[in-house]
Structure formats: C-alpha cells, structure tokens
Simulated scan of single mutants.
Amino acid sequence: MTAMIKAHEIQGVIALENSFNRVGLDHVVLVKVATAGVVTRLMGGSREEVINALSNAWIDGQSLRTYRHAPNTGSRKSWAAGDATSRGVRLALIALKGEMGYPSALTARTWGFYDVLFRGNEFKFQRPYGSYVMENILFKISFPAEFHAQTAVECALQLHPRVKDRLEQIEKIEITTQESAIRIIDKKGPLYNPADRDHCIQYMTAIGLIFGELTAAHYEDSVAADPRIDVLRDKMTCIENPQYSRDYLDPSKRSISNAIQIFFKDGTSTERVEVEYPIGHRRRRKEGIPLLVKKFETNLARRFPAKQQKAVLDVFLDNRKLVGIPVNEFVDMFVI
C-alpha cells in the first residue's frame, strides 16, 4: 500500500505543475520514473541505487503523444502505461545489479532532459510529496470516456430525454468546457478508429444525446456509422469557460466541469445543464464508491467462477484482510 501511494504521488505531484503534453510528450514518462524509483526500493535498493534507476528513467527516449491525437490516434494509448511500467522495472533491476546513474540527467546543459525535451524549463512543484494524489484519485466509473469529457457525457445523458425525439430539429449545441479539454479532445473531421472516438468530446456527447448511454461498444465502427452522430458533431461548438480552467488547476477543487445547452431551429432551447465534478471525483465519493464496487463485481464476473469472485470480494471489502494478505496470496487469487 505504501509503495502504491508513493508511485501515485511521484507521478501525480510532478504532473500538477508540469505539462508534458504541451511539449509533445506522453505523461507515461512519469509512470516509468515512478516505477523505477519505487520498485528499486521495494527490492531492497539503496538510496544511491534508487537515484541511479531514476536518472536512467529520465534519460530514456520518451514516448511522444502521437498516438493520442489525430491523425494518428491509436490503440497504443491502451498499453502505453503498461509498457512504461515494464521499462521502469527493467531499469530498477539493472540498477540493483550495479548499473551507474547520471547526476545531471535533468539539468545538464544541451544534453539533459530539461534542455532536450522540456524547452529549457525546470520542473516546478506545488506541494511536497505526501499522499495528496491517492487521496484525490479519480475513478473512471460511469463511462469509458477520456476524463475531460466525463462530465460532458453526464450532461448529455441528462438532456437525452428532452432531445431524443427532436434530434433533426437541433440547430446548434454549445459545450462549455475547460482549456485542457479543448486542447486534448476537441476534434473536428473524420475519426478513424475507437481510440480516436474515445478522445473526441463531440463524439462522446453525441452518443449520450442519441442513445442515453455510453459503453465501449459505442466506439466501434458499427455504431460510428450511424449518420446522426456526425450530424450532431458538426453542430457542436466548444467554448472555454476561464473559471472552469482555473478550477481545474485549483488544488482544493480539481474540478473537471462541462456544461451543455441545445438550441432548436424554432428558437427554443434546453436549459443549460452543468456538471462540475465527475462521479469518480473525491467530492462525489458517497455516490461513487457503491458504483465502483458494482463495476468491480461486474468485471470479476466476466472472468472468474462464482466461488473465486466471492473470495476476491471478501478480501477487497474487508480492509483488515486486504492490508494483511501476503502479496503472493493476493496474486494467487487472480489465477484461474
């Protein structure tokens, strides 16, 4: 548990004030760095060996965000973090075998990470390392959607009963959102595959308005061929609300706000529906946790026999058992 908290805290606290996507790098570099450091320590590494592993993680070639954005959005975004984790473990193992580190991996002029990949800027830190990230973790509960669009989909589902029989009468749809959503998932034009579609706020919103739900199946070609989707996408405009952008970065809020209003050809409109926090947010834990448990149960049922499902649930729903179970026994629970 301590190692999990450390791994989340390292990558999360660095990410709070340092935007890797603005320089074209995928954030999984932080997954690799956190893994390298924490795994080295887990395996008995000394302070020097941890530093050696970390320095090698920073000087590795880093993943570009190419596969997360049009026109190259693809399935690599589904395995990029796992790939980064495996590399972090590899760097930990060689550090434990005596592989040297590089003292100025970040700061070396011309050749260090800052100059080569971060436009010469040094990292900034908002807070010391503690447990902030784990305490504020966002669970993806309700929809298989990129996080900046979670609340937009929730708005769309609220509007679905009002518009489902009037889709052809819609003149325009206004999506009010944060700067990050506009930069990352505001997409026009063709969407080429499921990975492209689940990173398009207009596509996800259209699905919610048309079908009143959003599942993984809605990203497949068979659904995407529905002409109503692109008709609605073409009528959507994304508008930044500066307050949404500020609240998104505010450490006391970390909201991910979206609002949707639909205007019809006869001059009427829906109310403006706004959702500030997705259901997986810390501020919605009371309603979110029961749904999270249900999602866990559903996915266990897809993979394991009933007896094994119950054994896993008994451990996960009892904090004393979960904290006390040896790692090897924990892993054995998931073997079929």
Rank of each mutant, 00 (worst) to 15 (best):
F139I: 00
L157F: 02
G189F: 01
F123K: 12
S257H: 09
M134H: 12
A95E: 15
T270P: 04
A156W: 03
N136V: 05
L317V: 10
M43V: 05
Q62N: 11
M100G: 11
N328M: 13
P278Q: 07
E49P: 01
G189N: 05
R302C: 03
G288H: 01
T2D: 12
N121I: 02
T110K: 14
E240S: 04
F113N: 04
R197A: 01
V323T: 08
G44V: 02
Y114V: 04
A108E: 12
R197L: 02
E329I: 14
Y67K: 11
R119M: 12
H8F: 09
A217V: 14
S19C: 00
L317R: 15
I59H: 03
Q126I: 03
I207P: 14
K188Y: 10
A216G: 15
R254L: 09
A108Q: 10
L300W: 02
I260H: 05
I184D: 02
T205F: 01
I262A: 14
Y277S: 08
R282K: 05
I175G: 00
S269L: 05
V33Y: 11
V315A: 07
L93I: 07
Q308K: 03
G37L: 10
D318T: 03
Q158D: 13
F316A: 10
S19T: 00
N56K: 15
A306S: 11
P326G: 01
Q126E: 13
T66N: 03
C155R: 06
L106C: 12
G82K: 10
T237I: 09
E48M: 08
R197K: 03
E276L: 09
K77Y: 01
L42T: 13
K253Y: 11
E168F: 11
K310H: 11
G212V: 14
L25W: 13
P242I: 00
F264N: 10
A70H: 10
S55V: 05
S63D: 09
D266G: 08
C200G: 06
Q308S: 00
R303D: 10
D196L: 00
K187L: 13
W58D: 01
A195T: 14
I5P: 06
